[in-house]
Nucleic acid binder design. Structure first.
Lengths: 337, 337
DNA sequence: TACCGAACTGTGACCGTGCACAGTCTGCCT
DNA sequence: AGGCAGACTGTGCACGGTCACAGTTCGGTA
């Protein structure tokens, strides 16, 4: 009575034998059931049940040339995976959208150079049908590597610089930044600083651009700080900003993580948020609610982003070219600004 | 000059032809290179380079019967995946440990009944070699399903109730809770409350047990609150606790997420943390640093937990039975208590 | 010189599936 | 009666590897 030990997994032949039909008929029942007589179908379905048959994934992939899975590819250093709740939100959406189609997600983190080289191999080895590229940096060569190798790829954010064109799913960065800036202006703030992301990321560049456009004459280059999308970086940027401008009355941080850091730095300096200084974020990640005070932020439509990425990727895999997509954001007003 | 279109991926036969050897020799070079002459090895390696050969994953899996990937299986409702930073920490560690062995992680979220039934199929279809089960609830039948089907499985936390034995990786819950409780007592607190997790999770049960043991005569059942591992639940529990005991001077929350909620509730009630009330957490997740004030918490060795799970799972897959493992925690003192 | 084992190489079978193709059977139309 | 289309079924091959086994070569030894 040993467990499944030694007991070979039933194959399509076993099912065929039990059902009294050929392998071909079983295969047809499994894949849609066209051109199969009702009798045969019933016999096969019964045989599948009685044998406990499960299609062998590897064999099917080999025969069809498709893996039925896609890669969720992170190019940021690993530690961001958990520091930045954004990734988890996208991962969750992608997993859900794919599992509805009986496909799986293979998580690949390519933070070292070595890893990055392996990625093309993974994809080309037929392990995955396509890649959801979660990346932001302009310097990212992975996009070109993948696209150049003819691997179906969809990207988050609009890649900066010269790249092989690939469908992207992004939000209206400039418009979102203008909306938030307008909100801060409407609340009466005039000396508004911005803590933006690295200049080689779309978020870093376009959110600053939108801010600048909306501020118009009120824009003061002295109130611009740029740093990485991390809590400590946000805190450091806030500290630098405070040292330069004592009359600051609001700060627009280009991500919730940075905003949380900025709030901590402000509090350490004895400044109350939002009474003395309004601080707004961007992303509406889980942090925005958890933060103290809860963040006023630009909400990214994470569910729509991830499901659109999956939709587009599957179409591309199926051979139907798709356009890039730009989704709207929504201002989420809480307590911090 | 169209891209990789139509150009068939090179197979092991192409490599063999270019190198002037047989498929067998190429295969031997790829898999360790034993019993291969230096000349042949060099020729094959050169041929692999010039053809850009990459082993087909599906074909290899079919031939060897191994998938070279494992499932990271979440049984909690999906929304916890991103609400609870714990999962991301484990996922990160597992991905890293596996990528060192050229294996990949397939992320599976089984939150609906339907999904849970599919999981066994996934595993049995040979898609993965084994399963890292990230679960906590006693009522979890998935463990028995997987273990019963003979699928190599390793579990986080010690499963409660009657289950088919499976190697687990856990921390010393009772001891950890005693350590934290002792710390709070040593700081002079006497009216210490506890916000613990659901009773059908090891964390919920054993942390309460450790707390009770260490408190001894000071233990007051009135100062025990139980709720889900979520921020709102932590806040609600805190509110209930405050309503019952105005003389509370410390609270031990069984997770950082709950502690953050508890802090928010305390602040809303006009109570300063840690001046009026010390609040400690458990996990040392990313939240602990981000929180305001930063959390004093019991640090779980996430890296060691995830890499140990992977180690053990791979041994089990290889046919070497392994014992369960209990890892130590460490008190991390910050500002909240 | 004959034999032997070690080191290396090639070959055929097989993993489990999908798919193209060739049948078979039936009923209908001319 | 013969032909034909449509519905259904079975078979051989391909997918790209691995592995067991059978050969081959070669230096050493009795």
């Amino acid at each position: 009575m040993d467990t499944a030990e030694g007991r070979r997994r039933p194959t399509i032949r076993d099912v065929a034998a039990v059902a009294g039909v050929s392998r071909g008929t079983v295969s047809r029942v499994i894949n849609g059931g066209h051109w199969v007589s009702p009798d045969a179908r019933i016999a096969v379905e019964e045989a599948i049940r009685s044998t406990g048959y499960t299609a062998n994934h590897a064999a099917r992939s080999l025969a069809t040339g498709r893996a039925n899975s896609i890669a969720f590819l992170l190019t940021e250093p690993q530690h961001l995976l958990f520091a930045d709740p954004t990734f988890a939100l996208l991962l969750r959406g992608a997993t859900e959208a794919l599992s509805r189609r009986s496909m799986t997600v293979v998580l690949i983190v390519a933070d070292s150079e070595q890893e990055r080289r392996n990625v093309e191999h993974y994809a080309r080895a037929g392990h995955v049908d396509g890649v959801l590229l979660i990346s932001s940096h302009e310097s990212d060569t992975l996009l070109d590597t993948l696209a150049g190798a003819g691997i179906p790829t969809v990207c988050t954010g609009i890649p900066l610089g010269e790249h092989i064109p690939v469908p992207t799913v992004s939000v209206d960065e400039v418009g979102s930044a203008r909306t938030m800036t307008r909100y801060l202006l409407d609340r009466g703030h005039r000396r508004i600083g911005i803590i933006t992301g690295p200049n080689d990321t779309p978020g870093g560049r376009f959110r600053l651009q939108g801010f600048r456009e909306e501020m118009g004459d009120l824009f003061d280059p002295d109130l611009v700080e740029q740093d990485r999308y991390e809590k400590d970086a946000g805190a450091a940027a806030m500290t630098r900003l405070l040292a330069r401008a004592s009359d600051l009355d609001a700060v627009f941080a280009a991500s919730d993580v940075m905003a949380v850091g900025a709030i901590a730095a402000a509090k350490r300096a004895g400044i109350r948020v939002p009474e003395d200084l309004a601080i707004a974020g961007f992303d509406n990640s889980g942090l925005a609610e958890t933060s103290e005070p809860p963040l006023t932020t630009m909400g990214q439509p994470w569910d729509r982003i991830s499901s659109a990425m999956v939709d587009i990727l599957l179409d591309v895999i199926a051979g139907h070219p798709r356009e890039s997509l730009v989704l709207p954001t929504a201002l989420v007003i809480r307590d911090s600004a």
